[in-house]
Design a protein around this nucleic acid. Structure first.
Lengths: 332, 332
DNA sequence: CTGAAAGCGCTAACAC
DNA sequence: GTGTTAGCGCTTTCAG
């Protein structure tokens, strides 16, 4: 069997309390401390974090619920969250919810039974009640890259409205008037669309609701929707895709139709993942400061876990429009 | 405070043992069972998995160590592993090691203290001793998309040798003789290179070691190495990239030099991630059956955790060469 | 069938 | 300073 605190105590000729004290850096006589350290060393003793957590200490584990780890943008967030969490001594258990209410509830419940110290919900949130319940029971929660007016929790987001506004303005400045939007079924997209509409209005361009479509955020669906848009009698000259995957989907549709980008069609995306850097031409996008967002989210959560946090806050970072080669002057 | 088993017992007018029995589906009188169930319901009781694990039950958590979650191929594996694990009632804690010996050791140690039920190591393994130690202490382990002759553990891999052989043969059949390889610093790449060499030899083509280079597996490095290869006096007419990222890096290099693909340069990759489907032209690649590999890995691990497994096994799946448009006849 | 009681490994008063 | 001891919440003999 693995050595326990009793084994160490016995070997060191002290009581288990003393062993516990040295582990937790409490006042202990120099002699005793050394004996204990030596015994731990010799036995290759590793304290059980389970037992320790049972007595009221933290589990130093946080639950991270996200829509889909296979999505590159989400995966990158996960990596950043993980990094920051590790830096601060926490582990992360990741659960992909597929933006499904039941899964959100199920995984949250399970992780609570495992006594995770807190939760981060990223990218989307279908089941607000889950978060409300968590908050009601004083469980630390932070929302990342998504926020919700109905709950009072810490959140870190990018200003989606501004992002949408920036993209639309950029496209308008290039002379585009018929600008389509391929959105995802998520809260963030709604804000981006709002920004987009606002920009059009500011420039006195009429909004055509037929140009705004919603997808399930896959290459295939992006391609299909872009194709449909291009097949209409009065097709758009530019597409604003609400994430990189949908943008690339649009690329595929354009390619099949032999439309050149940005010659025949301008395409802009959102996120700035690997996909946007590797595409041909490179994608004009709104960049989300992933690293920054994730670090802040983790820090916020840990402050709350450690009870140091004062008041709830909503951190909104400003996105950057990065103009690359997928957008160009309107030729029509 | 959260309700405990005592609260339920009291409310139901039975002993905690009885409550425990109904939770574990043991024989309990119908009357008692109903009372207990009712009390649990009313209190919204959720048993602490911590306490339960402390008494010897599983934590139903597995540790998943991988090189880098931000890599699309790795992220997809993570998603598949997570899915399968959830299906089987397990949670997954993910740790990116950056293929670093220290991190591998550190995270493993930490997770053991948290009493995870088993480990999956994916994609790479720098610190074999870590695995050896785990095995020595009867901790269930499986290697995924990587294997190591020095340890006797369950593993699920794709036949890298065959994959390399397939790519090289395909390229040779198109008339290519100078075929470069951009490898990663990982065990799997070595096998792929072996397969590549074997194919060349079988066709009587001389091996030029200068055409085989190693990268750190980023776009930038792939681009840089491809660029260097193309700048030599006797450049390759085809590149075999050991993963999709490096293949796309090669695309970028070719694009900068205005070399068309596959006209001036054929490029083939490995993995079959989103990147290979979205590139222009779509990438010829060796497909790893990710889903299958991951399910089997999780199943193997859980069998071992549940003590049902018989003997250690090494599962080797055969890869498929998928010919798309990035490879074509040699014109030189 | 069900209850009493002894742990699981560690923490934290409370005494000495 | 250091030891004793009572839990943390649950499982599991062992009686009855």
């Amino acid at each position: 069997m693995k050595p326990t605190i009793y084994d160490v105590a016995e070997k060191a000729g002290v009581s288990i309390a003393t062993v516990s004290y040295v582990m937790n850096n409490q006042k202990v006589g120099k002699k005793s401390r050394e004996k204990v350290l030596k015994a731990m060393e010799e036995l290759n003793y590793k304290p059980s974090l389970l037992a320790s957590a049972l007595t009221g200490k933290r589990t130093t584990t946080i639950g991270f619920l996200l829509p889909d780890l296979a999505n590159p943008f989400v995966a990158e967030m996960a990596r950043r969250v993980e990094d920051r969490a590790h830096e601060r001594g926490f582990n992360v258990v990741i659960c992909s919810t597929d933006s499904d209410k039941e899964k959100e509830a199920l995984y949250t419940s399970l992780l609570r039974q495992k006594r995770v110290d807190g939760f981060i919900f990223a990218g989307d949130l279908k089941n607000v009640d889950v978060v409300k319940e968590l908050v009601g029971e004083q469980t630390p929660v932070v929302l990342l890259a998504v926020s919700h007016p109905a709950v009072s929790v810490n959140s870190v987001t990018v200003d989606d409205f501004t992002g949408g506004y920036q993209v639309a303005s950029h496209l308008i400045s290039l002379g585009h008037k018929r600008i389509a939007v391929i959105a995802e079924e998520a809260i963030s997209s709604r804000e981006r669309i709002r920004g987009y509409k606002h920009a059009l209005q500011d420039q006195g361009i009429e909004i055509d609701e037929d140009l705004i479509v919603t997808s399930d955020s896959s290459f295939e669906d992006g391609e299909r929707l872009a194709d449909e848009l291009l097949n209409t009698s009065h097709p758009p000259t530019a597409i604003f895709a609400c994430n990189d995957i949908l943008a690339i989907g649009s690329f595929l549709a354009a390619r099949k139709k032999n439309r050149s980008i940005p010659g025949d069609l301008s395409v802009a995306g959102f996120d700035n993942t690997l996909l946007s850097k590797s595409s041909d031409p490179p994608l004009t996008i709104v960049e989300q400061p992933i690293q920054d967002m994730c670090s802040q989210a983790v820090d916020l959560l840990i402050e709350e876990i450690e009870g140091k946090s004062t008041r709830k806050q909503r951190i909104v970072l400003l996105p950057d429009l990065i103009i690359r080669q997928s957008t160009g002057p309107c030729r029509f």
